[in-house]
Design a protein around this nucleic acid. Structure first.
Lengths: 336, 336
DNA sequence: AGGCGTAGGGTAAACGATAAAGTAAACGGG
DNA sequence: CCCGTTTACTTTATCGTTTACCCTACGCCT
């Protein structure tokens, strides 16, 4: 392509310099080159460029699911900011499958991305050692690994659990159940928050009111229905349920309604995620706002900061505070 | 990296051959090489490879919005199938902004993707000429350009409009309104289907019952609310509304409920998209299934077919038939 | 024994760009 | 008028792979 540009009688290096607005080129020449570039609608081959510079201007994002709008929102805000700064986001989904995730990581590493952003569904840290060996900087989002001194952006999940559980107590629930999420940090920490608030209020946790995630069926509405079905078979029935996330909560609501219960009168339900449609649901769903947009923004900031310096700066941890969003599904009078 | 692999005392070409399972290498040698590769956790530099082969094993996808689960589902199924065949999907969002879309196209072209998949928000075809000039194969999805002899995968949008409108007539609606979508093919064709069915049933279209999309605020719930507000100011009020898509319909429902109307008794509403949560909404929403999964699958099939041959095969057009999914928002007795 | 096909491997050029170092002309100051 | 600086380019090397072609044994056929 550049030979074609050489019909201006200059060397390809000059063209290259124009493309990078290197100062080393005359005004007149620059304009002639630019004109010709526009004429041919020429664009440099990024593969060749990255081969020599070592930078791809590509940032990878691995999420457990694209359909979950929490991650979709992160992807959106992230992609927006990175793009403004000349970086491109390449998104891939691990479908909540650790093995697929590892495969994805390998693929992305082979492409020599400038940074990797991962919401990992792994429970071990070995994958990250591999990444570190490749000297590719990476940022963890949503799911943290305390053992790892890595960049992390996410929400305070213990606070999430506490906020939700305290809210159920505040509206007068006596028997509070919890539908757990996967055994990654958010699931564990939200559970911890749940336990802690119960303890603070002098109640002890009842094992029967805690439903553990079934393997291989993660955070879907269907699982929410099944979990609620189990909960409703307990005696006495719980009168408040904190669900790990909103899809679970929606499933739970559906099942409760199907069994003829009233929400929130008979049983109050709160989820987490504050998804797009929460307020238009059959029973508008109380939820905990995880600030997905801000997670995306903070991650972008962090990534750009890493990329600015040759030597990656010290790992940074950004923890956002969650926020309660109360709606009809917990709209009960205090001390009813 | 390969110099390191050359501590086996062989040339880099041999390594390269092993990596591509070229037959030209002995069993013993192959194994020694593979062992060393595993040992070093070595992965070839894809940038260098694609520089010489001209193939990147990268497929680009440009959608108007990642948050819209219709596109998210397409992305998911597409990505899954492509990955199985060794291709990678790089997703980018145009945010329904034609200019941003063009910029994205330029970016992706510069990266020499093997194929481009676009749900375009453009109304002109010039962008595609640019793509053709670059000799990058491309596939249009969801939004077609009749003037263009290009690959296309999507749903029969005239049928969508007809199905929805006919359904409203079937349940006894007399005054059927339409909240239009953007002026791209789905918007235009669904409107055409709406008109056609009205005509077939001997009714004429009433301009007052057709709300046109506001610029810059596309297909959001908020726009649905405003549109419904306008519709309810007409006299007589419409008793059935066909909304371009489900987010609009959800907005419309919210507004109607706010104004004290009953759905579907006073006004029936149908959308399009059959989104994830349609059945858990305050009023479960009747919708038209666009088969987003199958769109993704068909697109993947088409792309793989294009990639299989050096010379791209003839453009292919895949048109799926939509399906009515009736729920509570149109659950009225016939001839009420 | 000579020729020949083939298995297994090596050499060199090329892909499209950038980086570093070199060069020719113009300029300016003492 | 000479020499050091700039300015504006050009030359050369290099990034990590693949590709096309060359080479050397070895075995086998006649």
């Amino acid at each position: 392509m550049k030979d074609i540009a050489k019909d201006l009688g200059v060397s390809i290096v000059t063209i290259s310099k124009v493309l990078r607005n290197h100062p080393d080129v005359g005004e007149e020449m620059r304009e002639r080159v630019l004109a010709r570039i526009k004429e041919l609608d020429y664009r440099p081959n990024l593969a060749a460029r990255s081969l020599v510079t070592g930078r791809t201007y590509l940032v990878g994002l691995i999420v457990p699911s694209l359909l979950h709008s929490f991650f979709a929102e992160i992807a959106k805000s992230l992609s927006e900011i990175l793009r403004e700064n000349g970086y491109y986001l390449i998104i891939s989904s691990s479908e909540e499958d650790p093995e697929l995730e590892e495969q994805e990581v390998r693929q992305l590493l082979a492409r020599r991305l400038d940074t990797l952003i991962i919401a990992s569904c792994r429970s071990t840290v070995e994958v990250f050692f591999r990444i570190e060996k490749h000297k590719t900087p990476y940022v963890l989002i949503d799911r943290s690994f305390p053992a790892l001194a890595a960049n992390f952006v996410g929400v305070d999940d213990v606070a999430v659990g506490m906020l939700a559980t305290q809210h159920l107590i505040d509206i007068g629930c006596k028997r509070i159940a919890h539908i757990r999420g996967p055994k990654t940090s958010p699931g564990l920490q939200r559970f911890e928050g749940y336990e802690r608030v119960l303890a603070q209020n002098g109640r002890n946790m009842v094992d029967e009111y805690v439903i553990t995630e079934r393997k291989g069926d993660v955070g879907t509405r269907q699982h929410g229905e099944e979990a609620m079905n189990q909960l409703l078979s307990r005696t006495p029935k719980p009168d408040g349920v904190f669900c790990f996330n909103d899809p679970l909560a929606i499933g739970a609501i559906n099942e409760a309604l199907n069994q003829g219960l009233r929400i929130p009168e008979d049983i109050a339900i709160i989820g987490c995620g504050n998804l797009q449609y929460d307020d238009s649901l059959r029973i508008p769903l109380s939820s905990i706002n995880q600030h997905s947009r801000r997670i995306g923004e903070e991650t972008a900031r962090l990534v750009l900061n890493i990329l600015k310096f040759k030597v990656p700066p010290k790992p940074e941890t950004v923890v956002l505070q969650p926020e309660l969003v109360a709606r009809a599904s917990t709209a009960r009078r205090r001390r009813e």
